[in-house]
Design a protein around this nucleic acid. Sequence first.
RNA 1: GGGAGCAUAGCUCAGUUGGUUUAGAGCAUCUGCCUUACAAGCAGAGGGUCGGCGGUUCGACUCCGUCUGCUCCCACCA
Length: 882
Amino acid sequence: MELPIKYDPSLTEDKWYSYWLKHKFFHSEPDEREPYTIVIPPPNVTGVLHMGHMLNNTIQDVLVRRARMLGKNACWVPGTDHASIATEAKVVAKLKSEGIEKSDLTREQFLEHAWEWRHKHGGIILEQLKKLGASCDWDRTKFTMDPELSQAVIDTFVYFYKHGLIYRGVRMVNWDPEGLTAVSDEEVIHKETDSKFYHLKYPISDGNGNKTGEYVIIATTRPETIMADAAVCIHPEDERYFHLKGKKVMIPLINKEIPIIEDDYVTIDFGTGCLKVTPAHDINDYEIGLRHNLPVIDIIDQHGKLNDKAQILVGEDRFVARKKIVKMLEEEGLLLKVEDYKSQVGYSERTNAVIEPRLSLQWFLKMDVLAKKALHYVENDDVKLIPDKFKNTYRHWMETAHDWCISRQLWWGQQIPAYYLPDGKVVVESSLEEAYKAAKEINPDIKIEDLRQDEDVLDTWFSSWLWPISVFDATIPGHPDKTPNKDLAYYYPTNDLITAPEILFFWVARMIMAGDTFMNEKPFRNVYLTGIVRDKLGRKMSKQLGNSPDPIKLMQEYGADGVRLGMLICSSAGNDILFDESQVEQGRNFSNKIWNAYRLVTGWQVADIEQSKEAAIAIEWFNNKLNKTIAVINDHFDKFRLSDSCMTIYKLFWDDFCAWYLEAIKPAYGAPIDRKSYDATIEIFDKLLKLLHPYMPFITEELWQNLQAREDGETIMLQMMPNAAEYDEKFIEDFELTQQAIVAIRALRQSKNISPKESLELKIKGAFNPELSSILEKLANISSVEVVSDLSQFTDGQILMVGTVEFFVPLAGMINVEEEIAKAKAEIERYKKFYNSVNAKLSNERFVANAPAAVVELERKKLSDAQTKIENLEKVIENLTK
RNA sequence: GGGAGCAUAGCUCAGUUGGUUUAGAGCAUCUGCCUUACAAGCAGAGGGUCGGCGGUUCGACUCCGUCUGCUCCCACCA
């Protein structure tokens, strides 16, 4: 069977993924083994795979596959998030393209469209994850709007409401007067906009509604809101306005008397230092209003037009009103001046309308107690953040957390289970029937159809914070006293959560709160925070910029294994990754390297002949090196240094296995290999594939299946990971010295233009392990190796120093004596400098007195080694000058 | 404006409580090779006063201060 020279992932990836699925290797059920659990951060149900998902899910898959191979009962629960805002926006846009406005539809009709959309597009992303090799337990796939998960959300709301943690309150929202909805902060785009700064004269009154003839100057960009003013505010330490303290002013045009108040929110040197306070139409003014108990006068309706509370210009659009009122003020002589001004104005992402800050009734969840508890888990490392630098950020947020606004003016999501009686009273129950029962307690005559459910839905995070619980047992949220089912009892708390730092607060902290409330236990032990995937220029990858490669295309071109390796090799925890296609190219090249090593090994003819010395040595060395490296890999994993672990295996395979081991045991062209070496090599290859499997699942399965005869139903996925057995450090060191000597000889050949085919002799002086001669002979093409005690008789050649061992290569007539002397002299100079610096250190009594003995000892060794080297070099010069 | 983080080779990053580091790796670069596994390869080589300044210490890439530059989070100025 002739194997192609290049590895073709398209021939293996789908094949093995189906095989894994067919045999249900990803599926987990509780048993007596130790569980290892990850719940996927559920991607938006209608989303498509982007590079961030690729990184995030590759990491999860590596951890899960490794855990499985360590004998744990690994369970990776997949699923999707209904993502109310994003999904609703997509559905609205789709309907619009068909000429349908959301406002033309009833809630039920709209939801029908939304579900249709979800069924059509939902799950695409999960299919894409399969291409990546994700070993999720697909039988457990969940959606945050599955009936039982939605019920869990409702029950949770009821639970917190009944425990007094959920309340209804007024809050300033970003109102879109065209879309007629509140939009979240994330959907507001701030743009620098040209506007005007109007300086207005407010008459000072005598307190009885009479003007005193004096004025105070106020600068504003929104003169149309003056009718909603509740006060004028000055800074308490602003000397210019001391005389105004306690006085009152009249609102121009409507002549309403309002107080002058003091608040250090005001910036003395901004504008006139005198601020009109309009609690209904500015978030900051609203807060000042709260502090000073000011009335809220709302003069703008939902369409952005002035209402009758404005008294004047009623029914006018806010921008028309602005122009008209300026004119009116000017006519009254109350407009002092108009300045051009640039300011950040918020626009609706969807309608591009100027956002109007508007007060509205919203539902809130009290955060103080929950945040304190959630902070505790992280503070004492019950939940570990990786890297731990995020602890600071986390603490800061938890200490300043304000109450969570959980209501959204949307339809796609879990509708708030608050039911209003005709008299405005409210009951909160987990179903209409329950609500009806409760309502009858208040009013026995009430009919079920009299109840009106709150129109709003809950924030998406209010459902996803239950995720680690509800994917296993959705009856527990809202009912902490119930006994968890078998799954939840077994898999919870989960082990690792892999997510992005930007949702540390939105999601991670809140899962901890929900876990504490309903399970009295953390939801996960470790939180591994990945960075943002950026392009080469450091820009965040985004659709708008078009700088994100299509992950599916990338996998087609480089193979899923190649992409996985490419992403992992450069991604440390918490750091952004600057993605460049050259990285996945490296991954693809590595796949090819593995493929070709396999081609070489399986192409050998095996014969019952004697094992060569160098093969025996190479096998011994590699097994030692392998054991040592496994220990390093395990250590990296324990510390979540995934890219380090990945690089370690990469080098083990490419450098140690391919460049050294295989070259050392490789029989001459056409010659067979002895059975002993062959078997040892297959065993080593088998171990390497297992070590590589978590990173590169497809190629490793393909090669493992073919390395030896396998039964149907066997898989590398479920093999035990090789252990870190003991190893002989001294032997590894001896081999390393030999490697360095070989490199030096090869470099010598290159500099002297000696072909690798021309064999050389070698004399060695120093601590060289003669067992390793055969390796030297084979890999440096040496005809004879002789260990001698004195090199002074050998003159016509070159001495190479590795550590303190000297390797003499006879090079009759090829040595330029003067050049070599000059080189040796330069070397001596270098070592003398070094010697002096070490010597200075050792002559420092305070160093010798204070430094640990081991450090001093080391310095002494450095000194004596340098001494030896200098002496050797001096001998070299002596020989050369003979 | 408040808070946090980062700065080490051309690029991406290690450097694990200050002393086996005369600062490492991968990629890229350069030189020589189509050597019968692999040119998606082989062999070899070069490249950094660890952002600047100051301090602590016998000893600083590592600790402290400060400056400069970048990033993120939060709040956004009437």
